[in-house]
Design a protein around this nucleic acid. Structure first.
Lengths: 121, 121
DNA sequence: GTACTTGGTACGAAAAACCATACCAGCGGA
DNA sequence: TCCGCTGGTATGGTTTTTCGTACCAAGTAC
């Protein structure tokens, strides 16, 4: 099934079948996992370029603060979406990249970009 | 292009071409538009069933308060994603449904559900 | 010896989000 | 006459996010 599915197709597949199967919703937990001002943006930056250093990410997400970036990255790492690789050099170097689990979020961003290209002026 | 695209395909298409074309990103504004604890959930409920009355929505999103639901629906209506239809009856009846613009968000939820089915236990 | 580098941490303050509670209209039913 | 129904609004308070600023280590260049 691709992205040109109809409303009825999605409803038939996700709404009627999966949702009511055992009470486990495959959408709500994902939405909650990705909540927060920066998480989706960070993942998206890592979609575009990976790996990225802490400072590079910070520059891309310009008004972000150290604290926010650190916290968000920690949570993303905790959720297994982002991998943190630390090199013991001076000055320190830390590289962030998407895990396979994180890369699998790509179709979401693809769908978002399709919508954005249609509706964002 | 469907959802089994490779990382390189997405990168080539969204990362390299569209993003750098004119500085307008088709992803970031969408992410910001959908931010907040309830917006995505409301849209998702309306994906599953539409139209829905205010009280039905409230029941589905159980711990939500009147204020939150009202505010979120107003913003979604303001963004043109949700349509509000008011019937002047007693007791009052108001039905919410997705606009075409809102329905076009469906592929995003489809992609989310695909990811959720793979990774949510 | 001083300044500069990176990838953070710690702290408190400010802002935003969220919540609970009470209240409203106006008709139908008991 | 009083209650209950719906779809909210108003108010104020609490909790969660987010921000701003200062600071750190440990080496390198000047």
């Amino acid at each position: 099934m691709n992205q040109s599915m109809t409303y009825e197709e999605f409803q038939a597949r996700v709404g009627s079948v999966i949702l009511t199967e055992n009470g486990n919703c495959p959408v709500t937990p994902v939405i909650q996992m990705l909540q927060g001002k920066w998480k989706l943006q960070i993942i998206y930056e890592l979609c575009i370029q990976s790996p990225m250093r802490f400072g590079e990410l910070k520059k891309m997400l310009k008004p972000i603060t150290n604290t926010m970036l650190t916290n968000a990255l920690k949570e993303l790492e905790g959720d297994g979406l982002v991998h943190r690789e630390q090199y013991n050099e001076i000055p320190p170097r830390v590289e962030y990249s998407l895990t396979e689990k994180g890369r699998d979020l790509l179709p979401i961003f693809y769908a978002i970009s399709q919508w954005g290209m249609k509706y964002i002026p």
